[in-house]
């Protein structure tokens, strides 16, 4: 589907809060009505939401587009209540209006010929992959998810994810559900099984996990992409506050890309993932 040229790539729009639901410990699914965002959005992109009624909070907050529903013109974001912004967001009521800037950033792209898509998600890093799997539901290739969290009360929407993928491998740090340990151990075992399939890795989550996926990708000579998170003041390339270090910069004076504009999706081999 090519984007509708009548819809601007990025715009600001007031969205009505359609629902807010607790889907795991300290984790909420916020659904907003914004047909123009839904129409323009592609998997991997994000929105920057204004946090309501709090003068002290200045910036918008960036969220991966987690799910879209074309029929109702709504989209959802998944967030953890961790700081001032998400606490304020958690206080929104049905019917409230939030200003949304988006869709922002680039998108996931899966190379032609891929016949096994491997998604590696840690914690809330699962967020962008629901939209991706929705969008790629008809694609015939295998979709394998490795999803790790600290403990089982932090898994989000397992039933929904299992419907959208070929297999779902769960890990928890404390062993309360799935395998005890990290997604990396589980992923490594999978990669050790020889396969004729063209595998492609997609990953999002904590920095330490992203680094480990990057290393595994190199070890098994797999290509892939990583979706990064970063503090952002604007989300569209103006503040230049979200640099991501490039492994092989095109020019010495351009050692950084911007997470908001050049990303958030980067090739797994393209960027330096710092601790």
């Amino acid at each position: 589907m090519s984007p509708d040229p009548s819809i601007p790539c990025k715009h600001t729009v007031d969205c009505r809060v359609e629902s807010i639901a607790c889907v795991a410990v300290e984790t909420f699914l916020l659904t907003l009505r914004a047909p123009s965002i839904v129409k323009a959005a592609r998997p991997g992109q994000f929105v920057n939401l204004s946090v309501p009624r709090c003068g002290e909070i200045l910036w918008r907050r960036p969220f991966s587009i987690h799910q879209v529903d074309n029929e109702s013109g709504t989209f959802s974001v998944l967030f953890n209540v961790v700081g001032r912004g998400s606490q304020a967001l958690n206080r929104v009521q049905l019917g409230d209006s939030l200003n949304c800037l988006g869709p922002l950033g680039n998108r996931f792209q899966i190379p032609p010929g891929t016949d096994e898509l491997i998604i590696v998600a840690g914690g809330l890093g699962i967020a962008p992959f629901y939209f991706l799997l929705q969008d790629w539901a008809q694609e015939p290739f295998q979709k394998i998810i490795f999803y790790g969290v600290a403990s089982n009360d932090r898994f989000c929407r397992l039933d929904d994810f299992s419907r959208l993928c070929s297999s779902l491998h769960l890990t928890t740090d404390d062993g309360s559900q799935g395998e005890k340990g990290t997604v990396i151990d589980s992923l490594r075992r999978h990669l050790c099984i020889k396969s004729e399939r063209n595998r492609f890795l997609l990953t999002c989550g904590p920095t330490s996990m992203l680094r480990a996926v990057q290393r595994l990708g190199a070890e098994f000579q797999l290509s892939g992409a990583v979706s990064v998170e970063n503090r952002m003041a604007c989300g569209f390339g103006a503040c230049m506050g979200c640099p991501v270090k490039l492994k092989n910069p095109g020019a010495p004076h351009k050692p950084y890309a911007l997470a908001c504009k050049d990303g958030p999706v980067f090739s797994l081999t393209e960027i330096v993932i710092d601790e």
Binding site: E56, L58, P243, K254
Partner: peptide, 16 residues
């Protein structure tokens, strides 16, 4: 001449 800018982190939100 072109400039690369500073290393991250480059920004932080404070009270207002």
């Amino acid at each position: 001449e072109p400039r690369p800018g500073n290393a991250p982190p480059r920004i932080y939100e404070t009270a207002a």
